[in-house]
């Protein structure tokens, strides 16, 4: 029986090929095999949202995806969307509003917020709260995070 699986996938635009243990989830693969430490492993059973990232264009829980199942997939992590500048305004707003304290939830929070802003042109505060309801933050009390996301939504509308 195969417990070591060969996969080839795209991570932040680069093709990588590796042999992975079947039980390895995507976050451990990124952190331990590829050295991409931006995606965080928190609860590792799909509750906390710290591992939120993109697979094939949609956000997923990285801890609930097996690396072995991702042959041919396109993975985008916080490193990728940071380098591309895609979420620069969100990151700036998080800094300006003090929406990150310890920072553990921040990569997942940014990925979830970016997904909301990609689908909703001008989300209301309760919609923002709903969109990040799957992402735990134990520091900020969420208010500053909602402020930051709302500010970016308004700025993007203004900018067109």
């Amino acid at each position: 029986m195969n417990t070591a699986i060969d996969i080839a996938l795209t991570v932040n635009g680069e093709t990588v090929a590796r042999r992975v243990e079947a039980r390895t989830h995507l976050i451990d693969f990124l952190r331990l095999d590829l050295g991409l430490m931006g995606s965080h492993a928190g609860c590792e059973h799909g509750v906390c949202g710290a591992c939120t990232l993109r697979v094939d264009g949609v956000i997923v829980r990285g801890c609930l995806v097996l690396a072995a199942s991702l042959d041919g997939a396109v993975v985008e992590t916080i490193e990728g969307v940071s380098d591309s500048g895609e979420i620069r305004d969100l990151q700036d707003a998080f800094v300006a509003r003090n929406a990150a304290q310890c920072g553990f939830c921040t990569p997942g929070m940014l990925m979830a917020a970016a997904d909301l802003l990609a689908h909703a042109r001008k989300p209301k505060r309760d919609e923002i709260r709903e969109a990040i309801s799957g992402n735990y933050c134990r520091c900020t009390g969420y208010q500053a995070i909602v402020d930051a996301v709302e500010a970016v939504a308004k700025a993007r509308v203004f900018r067109g």
Binding site: T3, E21, A22, A68
Partner: peptide, 11 residues
């Protein structure tokens, strides 16, 4: 926690 070892096959 980490999953126990198992095999994997894509049908």
């Amino acid at each position: 926690m980490k999953a126990p070892p198992f095999g994997y096959v894509r049908a």
